[in-house]
């Protein structure tokens, strides 16, 4: 994976030079370790700022919404699925995009690493299988990448981009995992236990909306939580308002979420709100055989009606 970057830079420079695209959306080194940030490159001589390592978790589809120019975008499996969703939802045209597909081996969870080291992390390096961090105390520690991946990456079943113009490297093998053990555990709880579980889960939420802002699906010009007329939901820290926000945001992602993990990664207090979107995802798979973002030519589950759709709710 460490060699991907040469190919990414070469392809980006070529596309910019040929004038095939006006800009490249990729990652550059962040101001803090393990926090690569998105960047827009417009000149071929700037492609060397692009980086690729295990800290490129942010979903770049967020930077394509309603763009008008021709863009090359570097897309992991999950980004590619969100790009497909963007195309379906008319947020960008397929013809505007040159998708540089990156077969992905998962992105690391900076929180897990930070929790396992003493002191602040000052430097991070990696090999194909290991992450090496150096702290303010001068200690060096290494972790096996497989052990510090983001949870959604350990469960990812579409690591290879589903839609691309060129692949940066050979496809990686896909994992076969049970994606929904955490959802099943909550489903097995009694009603009372679930109420408690969700109250506890969202208690630390500070309503910063980082989860929403990081989400490529949350592109509404005015989010329902920001509306004042009518005001759909209270804006304070009231537990019911917080829960309403999370419940409705999740529902707005029904049949669209690809579990890219952007929301959880962005949360400053480490809330796993993905248990809500994953429940919707699981129900979409089980009831409609629908997985989001696999093909721009198939209409989404909530966009179509079939006579054999389950309809037990409506009496």
């Amino acid at each position: 994976m460490l060699t991907y970057i040469d190919e990414i830079r070469a392809a980006s420079a070529r596309l910019l030079q040929e004038g095939a695209v006006e800009m490249v959306v990729g990652f550059r080194q962040g101001s803090q370790p393990m926090m690569n940030e998105p960047c827009l490159i417009r000149r071929p001589e700037d492609v060397d700022t692009l980086v690729w390592d295990s800290h490129c978790g942010i979903n770049l589809t967020n930077y394509l919404t309603n763009r008008k120019e021709k863009i090359a975008v570097i897309a992991k499996g999950c980004d590619a699925r969100n790009i497909v969703t963007h195309i379906i939802e008319n947020k960008i045209e397929r013809e505007q995009l040159y998708i540089l597909g990156v077969p992905c081996q998962g992105m690391v969870d900076k929180r897990q690493i930070a929790m396992r080291v003493a002191g602040e992390i000052t430097e991070v390096g990696e090999s194909d299988t290991e992450i090496r961090v150096q702290t303010t105390r001068g200690e060096i520690q290494t972790f096996a990448k497989a052990e510090v991946l983001q949870q959604n990456c350990t469960l990812c079943t579409h690591r290879n981009p589903v839609l691309y113009d060129a692949l940066i490297a050979e496809a990686v093998s896909e994992q076969t995992v049970d994606r929904y053990t955490d959802v099943a555990a909550i489903e097995a709880m009694t009603i009372g236990e679930r109420q408690q579980y969700f109250q506890d889960l969202f208690a630390p939420c500070i309503r910063c909306y980082a989860c929403r802002n990081a989400c490529p699906l949350c592109y509404c010009p005015t989010c329902f939580v920001d509306e004042a007329q009518p005001q759909w939901v209270g804006k304070g820290q009231d537990a019911v308002d917080v829960m309403t926000f999370h419940f409705l945001r999740a529902y707005h992602c029904a049949g669209r979420c690809t579990d890219c993990g952007a929301c959880e990664r962005a949360c400053p207090v480490g809330i796993n709100m993905r248990v809500l979107t994953k429940k919707l995802e699981k129900d979409c798979v089980n009831n409609f055989g629908w997985e989001a973002g696999l093909s721009p030519d198939v209409r989404p589950a909530l966009d179509t009606f079939n006579l054999d759709d389950p309809d037990k709710l409506i009496k």
Binding site: R194, Q196, K279
Partner: peptide, 22 residues
């Protein structure tokens, strides 16, 4: 259906949500 499933998942009894066309 997705909505009622999600509500039940979050701890709201299924029988509190009803829907019908009349």
């Amino acid at each position: 259906m997705l909505l009622s499933n999600l509500l039940e998942y979050m701890g709201i009894e299924r029988n509190r949500l009803h829907m019908s066309w009349v």
